[in-house]
Every structure is written in structure tokens, then in C-alpha cells.
Design a binder for these strands. Structure first.
Lengths: 283, 283
DNA sequence: CAGTTAGTGAAGCAATTCTAAACTATTCTG
DNA sequence: CAGAATAGTTTAGAATTGCTTCACTAACTG
């Protein structure tokens, strides 16, 4: 068992180092910016806590006795360490260093927030930023487990322990192999959609049902690239965020919209770097 | 210029390490011996001073976030250093380590306090004890300049900045080449005495004058060995502390006494080791 | 000797840090 | 699922710490 450490404070050690450097205690006090009395009392207290006499009296001056050398060495070392820590804290606080794990759905990463990400990377070169692109569900799992600090996902999920905040809404549109859509909703389809379980898939199906269109599914994938190819091969029509439709199709027929939200672990302390990215994402 | 260090205390760092070791904060608080409330508040304060969020909330527990690893490392290191310092302080305080420079006149070192010195050396094997044997005047110079921590010298000197304390008195006696002394003091002498400037020499001369004996000096030396030899060679009589007379002479005729005093630098902090030796010297 | 300088001690005040107790939220348990 | 137990926080109040100011002592300086 440790025999109860003396409760020394950085400040007291700082006094000691100052006194060892400056010609007089008064100068030391002035440099630190406290009254001579405070310095005197502080050093007395330090001496008392360590329990070993450290100062001699030389005329009216006080001198550090050589015996106290180990204490001075200790003080210097601890102050150096603390100074390093303060630097680290400063860098972390300003988001200039540290680690930040971000997740985004593909539309966010490659579509809406590409520029924001690039800019953020440029602004924080020392920050170790890892970006994970995956469907909302997976990202939310990782937010929940603490593997991600921040994620941009499709809104509408409810997940305990995860806090969300709306970022933007974007339109979902129907894209067909043929130019133009039948006037009669019942003639729409069949469909090539995002995979079962996807929130965007659910939004699309719901919209189609509301319009009275059939919801026959002939193929599914989570990769918009795959969906587009299917449409080109005339397997069926699809519902995609317009940013992901690509230039080969027409403007598409908007039938719904989805919300992109910023997700963070609930109760997690706000990481400064995460907060800075969040600000950037909100524009 | 350093950007003002956060005033962290050992105690706060200790909280952090405890929390990282124990399964719950309550356990950590119990181990340290403080209320859970104090721990909670202390860690909040630490977090605030460092300025970087360090804890997450996991259900009702709080966990150290990986980001705070550098702080924990710092805490461990500073605590280890402080623990070393505490050990050093403990050893120094109990006189088990450190340095002690002692001066003694020969009669004290070889006569009265030989056993005390041997015992003290045995009791404090780790203590670096240096013993300097020299006449009182020299020793007092060195006490004054700080080269010695402690000295046993002949009393009667007054030296500013040096504090003295009586240890013992010892008799000074006349020793002659012949057995027995003349009844008539005027027939005493001639003398072989300690060198001019010696305090013991002054005491002896004064005593002889008081008795009405002549004080013709035919030889002088500060080495009692030399004085004894002179007496054996019948150069003259001498006045010596009885401990230094040796067995070859009779008991001697006591004519005065001198005091041995413990001398220390005035205003010097009391070195624990010095204090322990002082206690031993006082018996 | 008067004046200045270095450091200390006392009083008062503000900030810190503790305990105790009430409180919130979460988890366990029958 | 209700109720108890648990983990941590908050609040109020007391104790401690640490600072400033001011008076003071001792030691240099001219």
C-alpha cells in the first residue's frame, strides 16, 4: 500500500522552480504574478507537506539548501510533463489533433458533404479522421457501441442512446428505363429498390402505396450503382435520391423526401473535433 | 512564455487513476477513502481544468473515453514520480538517507563521542556521513560558511551566525614528567601547550595565572600526541583534557575545565539527520 | 542613523473541496 | 412489472486552502 502521497499542486512546484531561477523570492513572486507573501506561504506549505526542510536563511535572503535538490528536480520534471499535457489539451480542444471517427451513408459522403469533408481535412491536417461509409443501420449500431463519434444517416430511425439532429432533406424520385412515366400509377413498376431493412426503401414503398402504385419488387441492392444499372437493363424502375441518379436519366418524378440527420451517441461528452465537424456539416 | 499551466493537484490525478483501475467510481472512491460525491466533483473539476472532455456515460456508469488516454498516462507518471519523492522524503526525514557533514575536535571524535559516532553510523547505513576533525576555530569557520552541518567544538567562542549548545564539561589537568607537582605554584612549568589561538590554551593559561604559576611557554602544538611526547622528553609540563593524557601519566592535577558545545549554523533549517545526531550526542 | 529591501505573520476574503443528504436514472429481482 | 438496490450527481453547508493587503522584523545601504 502506498503511504498516502503528499497533495502537491502544480502551483507550489512552480513557486519552487521560480525561486530557484530568480535572484530573489520577490522577483520570483513578481514573475509568477503573486504577492511575495503568497509565495512565502506557498513554499512553507510545500515544505511542510514534503516534510523535509528545504530552505536556509542567509542574511535576510532564503536559499535553497543543496539537500533539496531532488525536490527541485521533481518539480521541474512534473512541470515539464504538465506543460506537455497542456499542449496536448490545447491541440485537442481546438481540434488540431486527436482522433475522429465519422460514418456517412454513401449519398452523404459522395454527394452532399464531399466538399465539407475535404475542407475539414484541409483545415485539420493533424487530426486523424477516419470515414466509414455504410448503410444507416450499421452506422447507428456503431454510434451506439461507441465505435463512431459522429454519423450522417437517414432520419426516421429511433435508437435509444443515440441523439439525432436534422441536417437537410433531399427528394426521392422515380427513375424509369423509358422516358416519362405512365399517368396511371397502377401502371408503374415493377421495382428495383434498396434492400429490405433500408429506411429509404421503406420511405419509397410507403410513398408508392400512398399514390396507389403497385409495389412489385423484382430486384434489390443497397448500391445505387447497381440499381441504376438494373434500370438501364430495363429490369424495372427505381426510386433514388436525385443526387444519386446520375446524369443518364431524366430529372425523375419526385414522390417523397428523406431527411439526413446527424447522429451522435447520447450522453457522450462532446468531442471538440466532432463538434467542429458538426458545425461544418450544418453549414 | 508558457501559456499558464492548469493547476492540477496530485489528488485529482489520483482520482483519475483510481477510476481507471476500479470497476466503478464508487469503488474508486472507497479505495481512496473519500465520498463518491467528492470523487465525482473532483473529476469534473479536473476535466474542466484540462478543458478536454474525458468521460462518457454508459447507462448509469461513467467510462473513460479512449481519447483521454494521454491524460491517464500523465496522471500515472506524475503519481509515480510523486511516490518516489515521498519515499525520498521519508528516508530523509528519518535520517536514513541524505548527507551529513560533521566536524569535531579530536578529543570529541577520538575520545568522548567515538561510540556515539560508531552507533550512529551503524543505525544509518544509507546516510552519507562525513567527519572532519580539526581545531574549534576552523570548524566554526566551516559551520559559518555552510560547509558543515554540525560540529562539536570547545565552548567560549562567540561567532555571529552560529548557534551553540552545551554538551558536556571536561576537566583539564596538569601533567608533568616527574611524578607529583611542587606544592609551590611558582615552581610549576615551564609549559608545553596547545598553540596560540586555541581556546583550550587560553583556558589553561588563565587558570595558571589565577593560581599564580608562571606561564613560560617552551613549546606548542595542537596535537596532543606531540604534547605528550614533549612531556615524556622532559621538555616541560602540559595542560591537557584528561581523556587525552593517556595511561602513561598519573591522574594529573585538575586546574580547570572546558565545555564542549554543539555548534550549528544559526537560521539553518534543522536537517533531520543532524537533529538525530544531535540527540545522540546529548545522550 | 534614516531609508530601503527581503521576507514573514495576521486578518480578511474568495475559491476550493469536502461531507451529508436528497435526487435522478438505471438495473436487478422476485 | 413493482419495488429495491445501485451508480452517480446535485445541492447546501462546513472546513480548508490560498490569496491580498498591511503591518512588522531584520538586514543591508548610504
Amino acid at each position: 500500500m502506498t503511504p498516502a502521497l503528499p497533495d502537491l499542486s502544480i502551483r507550489q512546484l512552480d513557486y519552487l522552480v521560480a525561486v530557484s531561477t530568480e535572484p530573489s523570492w520577490a522577483d520570483a513572486a513578481a514573475r509568477i504574478g503573486v504577492s511575495p507573501s503568497a509565495l512565502s506561504q506557498g513554499l512553507s506549505e510545500l515544505e511542510r507537506r514534503i516534510g523535509v526542510p528545504m530552505f536556509d536563511r542567509e542574511g535576510r535572503r532564503r536559499t535553497l539548501r543543496p539537500t533539496a535538490e531532488p525536490v527541485l528536480a521533481h518539480a521541474r520534471q512534473v512541470i515539464a510533463l504538465t506543460s506537455d499535457l497542456a499542449d496536448w489539451a490545447e491541440r485537442t480542444r481546438t481540434g488540431r489533433a486527436g482522433e475522429l471517427r465519422v460514418g456517412m451513408i454513401d449519398a452523404a459522403a459522395v454527394g452532399h458533404f464531399t466538399d465539407v469533408l475535404r475542407q475539414f481535412r484541409d483545415d485539420h491536417p493533424e487530426l486523424h479522421l477516419t470515414l466509414r461509409v455504410a448503410p444507416s443501420g450499421e452506422l447507428l449500431d456503431e454510434i451506439e457501441s461507441g465505435d463512431l463519434d459522429l454519423a450522417v444517416v437517414v432520419g426516421g430511425h429511433t435508437r435509444r442512446g443515440v441523439h439525432t439532429e436534422s441536417l437537410m432533406t433531399e427528394p426521392l424520385a422515380v427513375f424509369t428505363p423509358t422516358r416519362g412515366l405512365p399517368r396511371d400509377f397502377a401502371a408503374w413498376g415493377p421495382w428495383v429498390l434498396f434492400a429490405q431493412g433500408s429506411r429509404t426503401r421503406a420511405i419509397a414503398e410507403e410513398a408508392l402505396q400512398r399514390l396507389g402504385a403497385p409495389t412489385t419488387i423484382v430486384a434489390e441492392s443497397n448500391q445505387p450503382e447497381v440499381l441504376r444499372t438494373m434500370v438501364e437493363l430495363r429490369v424495372g424502375s427505381t426510386v433514388l435520391p436525385v443526387v444519386q441518379a446520375g446524369p443518364d436519366f431524366g430529372p425523375g418524378r419526385v414522390i417523397a423526401e428523406r431527411t439526413l440527420v446527424l447522429a451522435r451517441r447520447d450522453g457522450a461528452a462532446v468531442d471538440p473535433a466532432a463538434e467542429m465537424l458538426a458545425v461544418a456539416l450544418r453549414n
